[in-house]
Design a protein around this nucleic acid. Structure first.
Lengths: 137, 137
DNA sequence: CAGCATCCTACGGGATACTG
DNA sequence: CAGTATCCCGTAGGATGCTG
């Protein structure tokens, strides 16, 4: 993102609404919708879930392994998404100071906590082939 | 998307890889990664999960209700995401032929099947405040 | 009320080339 | 090997205005 010289935090017209803590009332779905929305942002990005799926299956993976494991991704995207996941506390990046560089990625506790979600997601994905699914609920 | 007069299906350089059913082997994470990836696409979009959360909480909602329930969204986006969800078989759109138009949205069986996933996601989101979460997994 | 149409910008994300 | 830098396109998505 060299287009903005700074950190490019981005905060324009997007969330101009009132103060905050407003939908957090008792009438909101589940528990606190905005809190969920916030967490959802951490997972946005075409490759994040895929990366997490891989790291959940293989606890430690180096960059090249991830790259090979996710055929459609470019290094730029892989790096970018990994950095965001790291910044958001989902993934740990470990650099081994060697001559041929070696960097390994693994999940934090927070990242591992996604296990139930990803498992449910996988099961849901499997439903797409199930014929017993009535189209009209 | 009036820029492309047609349906603008979009299919450029995105998925040029081999045939398919290749990672579906026994060595892949969980079950079949590409299948999960495919299902993941149905949920992409800034507002889709939020919409689904709302519809899971309130089974039937009209357009204006959703609009009010999701403060940050624009009508354009709301419509667009709803249409995609409808097209992908997650949501049903029911038009009531009245003078002041009335359109209601609800989940299909497939959409309702996301309940466990969304629940897990909500629980995970709640973890962000939990102090007992070691940053290094 | 529910939606379509249009314009416009920022971001997502791919391709390629270069570096420690 | 594991990135960084740059160029570039297409899409996401906001703002506004109009319609049945």
């Amino acid at each position: 993102m060299p287009r903005t010289p700074e950190k490019a935090g981005y905060s324009p017209k997007r969330k101009p609404p009132p103060s905050a803590a407003e939908e957090t009332g008792p009438g909101s779905p589940g528990c606190s919708l905005p809190q969920v929305e916030e967490a959802l942002r951490l997972l946005e990005g075409r490759w994040k879930l895929v990366i997490l799926f891989h790291l959940l299956h293989t606890p430690v993976l180096r960059f090249s392994e991830l790259e090979r494991g996710i055929p459609g991704v470019s290094q730029k995207m892989l790096i970018q998404q990994l950095r965001e996941l790291e910044r958001d506390g989902l993934v740990v990046r470990t650099v081994h100071p060697q001559v041929p560089p070696k960097v390994e990625y693994s999940l934090t506790g927070f990242g591992q906590a996604l296990l139930p979600t990803l498992r449910a997601l996988r099961d849901w994905a499997a439903l797409r082939k199930a014929p017993a699914l009535a189209e009209r609920g």
